[in-house]
Amino acid sequence: MNTQATQDQTGRTPAAAAEPAPAGAAGGHGYSKQKEQHLKRLRRIEGQIRGLQRMVDDDVYCIDILTQVSAGTKALQAFALSLLEEHLKHCVAAAVEQGGPEADAKVAEATAAIKRMLGT
């Protein structure tokens, strides 16, 4: 039997992904203040993806679908960059202010996220 915990797409175990914000990260996550705006943006992106499904179902011309795929991809990338910026300003900055190994870990975590976003 494999005793190693499975990891989700973030590379964290499900329990680690659900952990509360560390001490010193007052107010929760960096995106908390913009949560409603983020949810609105994600619902808009979800609508774009559902539109893609309808386009395929309606046998729309390939290039038109690809154009919409590109728009959806760019929307997700813009959302990711916004979230990353908030993470750097809130979580990483707080860890750096506190110093110690937590700061290095947060910088490494952000670097890994950037690498995933770049596909490297």
Rank of each mutant, 00 (worst) to 15 (best):
A110T: 15
R50F: 15
L81N: 03
G11A: 12
G51M: 04
L66G: 00
L66T: 01
A15P: 04
A103W: 07
L39V: 11
V107M: 03
T73S: 11
A94S: 02
T6G: 01
Q4R: 10
C91P: 02
L39W: 04
A95K: 00
I63P: 06
G27N: 01
A75H: 07
M55H: 07
L52W: 05
E102M: 11
K74P: 02
D57I: 00
I63L: 12
R54L: 10
R44C: 00
K33I: 15
Q48L: 12
A15H: 03
I49E: 00
I65H: 08
Q9N: 05
D59T: 03
P14Q: 13
E109D: 09
K40S: 11
L66M: 03
K40G: 10
R50C: 09
V92P: 01
R43C: 05
T67E: 08
I45K: 00
E36T: 14
D64S: 14
Q7Y: 13
A71M: 12
G72H: 05
G119V: 04
A71P: 09
R116E: 13
P22I: 06
M1D: 09
L42A: 02
A25M: 04
F79D: 07
L84G: 03
K33G: 15
M1V: 15
A105C: 02
K89Q: 13
Q37P: 04
R116C: 00
R43L: 02
A112M: 14
T6I: 14
V107C: 04
A75M: 00
